[in-house]
């Protein structure tokens, strides 16, 4: 009956998951601003109200994400790489490879049967192929990123998006718009470009089933379809896929509590 919290401070959103008895009992998602400590606190408070629990019921708070050191009220910090592995394993125990596409980075993580990281690879030099890339390009098409998921379905002739720079890709998209290309085809081209960058990372760790797709971009149906098609494998996507890092963090805290009794 131990309630634990994981708080995942990403580059665009803060997520919190509360876990009790192997179940996610509360969660929250809110955008981050410039005051990360407050954002982290708010994430926990919102998740608590979602679950109807009190702050004092929480036995451990674990921070993860690039802002993990801003979860100053927590007990532990773990990198999001470890957390995505653990969280994905929790949701899909047969997971061997996790693909996480977040706001500013993309990671491929290889995990063992216990959800422990064996190997990982991340985008390095720039933000090409990340959630932000999609965000910016959706903007260039005149959509919000939350709307574009189903839009590529039915694309017939996906365009080729070759620019690696997010900002230049935006102008490439604009030029396709100006040339009267079907937004379906442009989006399909964008998905293809992001998936091909993701595949390159997946190749580094080696692809084997099952593959679990996590992070904000996994909410996009078009991306999931494109990934499935290109991998030729089924891809797990949980309705909680944005919370995988937070779930993993909470589980790490639990494990730590069990290893070192209070």
């Amino acid at each position: 009956m131990t309630l634990v919290a994981g708080v995942d401070i990403g580059s665009t959103t803060a997520k919190c998951a509360l876990i009790e008895d192997g179940k996610v009992v509360g969660r929250s998602l809110n955008p981050v601003g410039v005051e990360l400590v407050k954002d982290a606190e708010r994430a926990l408070a919102l998740a608590l109200s979602d679950s109807g629990r009190e702050r004092r019921d929480v036995r451990a708070v674990t921070g993860t994400g690039y802002g993990r050191f801003k979860v100053t009220f927590g007990q532990f910090t773990v990198t999001e790489i470890g957390c995505h592995a653990k969280g994905a394993h929790f949701l899909f125990p047969a997971t061997r490879v996790v693909l996480d596409i977040g706001g500013q980075d993309t990671k491929a993580i290889k995990v063992d049967a216990n959800g422990v990281v064996i190997d990982f690879a991340m985008n390095d030099k720039c933000a090409a192929g990340t959630g932000r890339f999609l965000d910016v390009c959706a903007g260039a098409l005149g959509y919000d990123v939350s709307e574009i998921g189903p839009l590529s379905l039915g694309a017939r002739r996906p365009v080729k998006v070759t620019n690696t720079c997010t900002v230049f890709a935006e102008s490439e998209v604009s030029s396709y718009v100006a040339r009267g290309k079907d937004p379906k085809d442009i989006l399909a081209g964008l998905y293809g470009s992001i998936v091909s960058r993701s595949l390159s990372l997946l190749q580094r760790v080696g692809v084997e089933p099952e593959v679990t797709f996590t992070g904000g971009v996994s909410r996009n149906e078009g991306m999931v379809r494109t990934l499935r098609a290109r991998l030729g494998l089924p891809v797990n996507v949980s309705p909680l896929s944005q919370f995988v890092g937070a779930i993993g963090a909470a589980l790490y805290g639990l494990e730590r509590l069990e290893a070192v009794p209070a």
């Binding site: 050191f69 100053t72 532990f76 910090t77 790489i81 422990v116 990281v117 064996i118």
Partner: peptide, 16 residues
């Protein structure tokens, strides 16, 4: 972290 865990010793660094 992952090296550490693979040796099945749990010793996460504390905050700070």
């Amino acid at each position: 972290e992952s090296l550490d865990r693979r040796r099945s010793t749990v010793s996460l660094p504390m905050v700070g």
